[in-house]
Amino acid sequence: MTIRHGLLALLTQGPRYGYQLRAEFEASTGATWPLNIGQVYTTLSRMERDGLVAPGEQDEQGRVVYDITEKGRAELDLWFATPVRQADRPRDELVIKLAMAMTAPGVDVARVVQAQRSATMRTLQELTRAKRGAGVAQRLVLDSMIFQAEAEQRWLAHCEAVLAASPKEGA
């Protein structure tokens, strides 16, 4: 449940309003993960219920600042200490598409691969452009996406080599 941990992490810098949390969350993830304000308030009220954050007084405009509790800090420490498991990722459409392209008659697999390589390369170019002039936190987020896109490129190049060495049966 990463939005809640992201908000907790921001609250360690001091009490924040909901709208501030939203803006800072987006800024630190390089705007790659947009949040709507509703998600922020829903998450805050659940965390309040669970004792992870505590609301302060309402100001004259009816806004409430939230602060992190001791329990919230313990939860956050545990989150930082726990590695993320790859198995939680959803099924990869591209892998399924290529496997199907191999078995379906009349599909030019090499062309499917090249089209994907070009598209992923354009994504990589956009991410690389965004990285120039980004702050350190944003840069790390963009780098993560760059490494993932790069892994896909490598895999596609590998597919190409495998296909060249052993063409599709019946082709």
């Binding site: 390369m121 990589l124 170019q125 991410l127 690389t128 760059i146 490494f147 896109a149 790069e150 490598r154």
Partner: peptide, 9 residues
């Protein structure tokens, strides 16, 4: 041959 560097182009 490295996609991450080609992406600067």
């Amino acid at each position: 041959h490295e996609p991450r560097y080609a992406a600067w182009a």
